[in-house]
């Protein structure tokens, strides 16, 4: 564990909590892509199956459980409890266009051809692109509420901080995982546009609105 990894994990946790608070307080999931949330739930469940096979640490186990439970809770809020507020019409990204290629890629490029390892690799690839339906929704409506913007910023920062963690681990421990590094870089790049808008608009107190 190093400072970058811890900061990344906390940023990830903050993102998830922000999203749940936003939905709960406003009693609405307007502006949130249910498609992205489905993908994140698939990511956590397929990645953390090793909960039953490998014990790393109490921290590791607790965080994995929190991620799985909170992603399922988010889906429950969106598709059951506050279903009426969910923006079906704008959330029209076809997730099979992400799920299928990620799974095929995991079958082709992986560290080991075992069920758990293939699912882990699939989850890494899928996580890299899971935010696309959300970004697509923001681009369709042309704006995002400030708390949604904070959520996206925290979620994007997490993988950027992990990139620093991987650089640190490479030098400090000689440890590296090319699959995670490559997918993490793609994931971070996808947020760059958003980071720019966040810093130039949201931090100056303006609403995140896309240029027409």
């Amino acid at each position: 564990m190093n400072i970058f990894r811890l900061a990344g994990d906390l940023s990830h946790l903050l993102a998830i909590i922000l999203l749940l608070i936003k939905i709960w307080k406003t009693r609405s999931c307007a502006g949130i892509s249910g498609k992205s949330q489905i993908l994140f739930a698939v990511v956590y469940i397929s990645r953390y199956l090793d909960l039953v096979t490998t014990f790393v640490s109490v921290y590791n186990t607790v965080m994995k459980l929190v991620f799985i439970v909170s992603s399922v809770a988010t889906l429950y809020m969106m598709y059951v409890k506050f279903k009426a507020t969910y923006d079906h019409n704008h959330d029209s990204f076809r997730i099979e266009f992400l799920l299928v290629p990620c799974f095929v890629l995991a079958l082709l490029i992986h560290a080991a051809f075992t069920p758990l390892e293939i699912l882990w690799t699939f989850s890494i690839y899928l996580e890299a692109v899971a935010i696309l339906p959300q970004l697509f929704l923001v681009s369709k409506t042309g704006e995002a509420e400030s708390i949604t913007s904070h959520y996206l910023f925290a979620l994007g920062s997490y993988r950027a901080l992990y990139l620093l963690n991987w650089i640190y681990r490479y030098y400090a421990e000689g440890h590296y995982d090319l699959i995670a590094i490559f997918a993490g870089a793609i994931q971070t790049i996808l947020y760059c546009d958003f980071f720019y808008l966040y810093i130039t608009k949201v931090l100056k107190g303006k609403k995140l609105q896309l240029p027409a």
């Binding site: 994990d9 990830h12 990645r47 965080m63 560290a111 995982d177 090319l178 699959i179």
Partner: peptide
């Protein structure tokens, strides 16, 4: 990255 690799990150 090896076969017996343990994924200790989240």
């Amino acid at each position: 990255t090896g076969k017996d690799q343990q994924h200790d990150e989240l």
